[in-house]
Design a binder for these strands. Structure first.
Lengths: 117, 117
DNA sequence: CCAGAATGCCTAGGATGTCAAGGTGTAGCC
DNA sequence: GGCTACACCTTGACATCCTAGGCATTCTGG
């Protein structure tokens, strides 16, 4: 039960470009593997953000390809093989730029949304 | 290399899904034509938001096709023919839903971005 | 001991939305 | 006459995301 594949009507989907930032954020806290990233983001956002594996893994390769993430195989607490991702120096820098951009965008959109005549 | 998403510093790009909401917002204030929408949003957001015509018009047709906008030909202050867009009832409803979704997303992303260990 | 769920990784295909770059035509100004 | 601003529209490319699968391992219950 409680299959998290349940999708409420009007459930917010991710906006393009947001995913990378979120991934970088959770990977910045400590090395983490893909499967856990999904759960982490879901948990922190109180189930508001849902990330599919079909979105996650391509994003992960993209980020690694761009030199923003690096990966190492390791063992989880449950004794399984998993690929742990962590930020590179460039990743950290990129993350800060993305965050700044996101805040700018938020503010700008708010300005428009709250504008009256 | 050749990362084609090369953007000039300080130049914020829109996130997918945001455009519709912004258009609905400015059209909600009063009927407005396409060319003016671009300028309005740019102005209100203090040049932070840039909308290309190549993004705008497809969005306009999309919204009209979905029954969220309706259009009427009219004359501008400068005496030119222009297509004025305004919100339908469904458009108003949709706009409110989009706004709510946007706020939820903002909050959720903020939660993640500000999360610590 | 075997089935199924949970964990963990990955891929293919299609839909969507944005952007760059063009095109049309009119009005006003020097 | 030529240039800029206004105002509309189209095409093609491309990145990103989602749906919907597949594979392998470990743990649990009957």
């Amino acid at each position: 039960m409680a299959r998290h594949t349940e999708k409420a009507p009007g459930d917010a989907e991710l906006l393009q470009g947001t995913l990378d930032m979120l991934i970088l954020k959770v990977a910045a806290l400590r090395p983490i593997h893909g499967y856990a990233i999904v759960q982490r983001i879901q948990q922190i956002s109180r189930e508001a953000l849902q990330i599919r594996q079909g979105s996650l893994y391509p994003a992960l390769y993209r980020l690694e390809n761009q030199g923003l993430l690096k990966s190492d195989w390791g063992k989880t607490e449950t004794g399984r093989e998993a690929k742990y991702y962590s930020l590179t120096k460039a990743g950290r820098k990129h993350f800060e730029a993305e965050t700044a951009g996101w805040k700018r965008l938020c503010d700008a959109v708010s300005l428009v949304l709250e504008s009256a005549e």
